[in-house]
Amino acid sequence: MSAGVWPRSGRSGVRVWALPLGLLALLLGLAFLALGLGAVATPPAQLWSALTGGTGPDTDLTRQLVLELRLPRVLVALLGGAMFAVSGSIMQAVVRNPLASPDLLGVGAGAGVAVTALLLAVPNAPGWSIPWGAFAGAWAAFLLVLALARDGSRLPPVRLALLGVAVAASLGAFQQLLLVRAPDGIGAALSFLTGTVYGADWSRLARLWPWALALLPVTLLTARRLDVLSLGEETAAALGTRVPLARYGTLALAVGLAAAAVSACGILGFVGLLAPHLARMLAGGLHLRLLPVSALIGALLVLLADTLGRAALPPLELPAGVITTLLGAPYFLYLLRRAARTG
């Protein structure tokens, strides 16, 4: 029957919820584990006592470890991962290109250059201004990549990816140039842009959460529009969508999410590419389902990367961005190969 979708999802209402709920449970479990893991041992009993208001010198230390150091870091990792993932999902739908993601389209690099320039011009720029600077830079870079890559109204996937990487590389070089000419100390202040949540504290989180809180729910409202846009321009127009408005509106969301994430945890390589693909495999292509699953997977990826980075070789800390890049780069190469083969 043509209504094949309905009976199935009706019968398996549990199944619809099973995946996001399962991921959420996994995420919470990992978060609790991440709060308990670190260079200083905090046994679960102590952790529990600290979180439930126990007293004593050990408990106080544990509470300080968990609330001052680990919790903000875990939250930044979760939000940053979710924002990159949702940003990537939107871009892949709108640009209709499996290789689209914030770091590959120059958005991350543009945000990085803009933050560098902002801190050079206004060394004591307030924390809230940094995501806005990143937003402006991200847009400029993104529009540049789109303008260069478009072939009439088409955006050939491999061309887009190549130009994105090229623009990102030249922006990276430009950022180096700015840093060479910068006074000492700015470079050190920007070291997090390479993609790490090391040293993330409540003030770093404050740069992030307003954007996450404002933008992530809105993306769910655009889910249907993303479904339509991912069918292609003509179909979307035929279905009554005002394509340019929908396209740039959703892209603005994607760029905003990525820019805010960059301003708090730098460019976490390939999260915005990997998470949407995994989500599509698990949850299918409908965005109302895809977006939350993608966000959960992105958050899970970054948290896992950072927890591994913290716990693997203490007291050394491996940057989360390095681990996500190690995971993501081979997958990107595989996608690139496949896309090149199919044209």
Partner: peptide, 18 residues
């Protein structure tokens, strides 16, 4: 006690040393 490298000292270990 080693608290990591100069560029990225481990904040947790430092806190633990009180």
């Amino acid at each position: 006690r080693e608290v990591g490298s100069r560029a990225q000292p481990n904040l947790e270990v430092m806190l633990g040393l009180k």
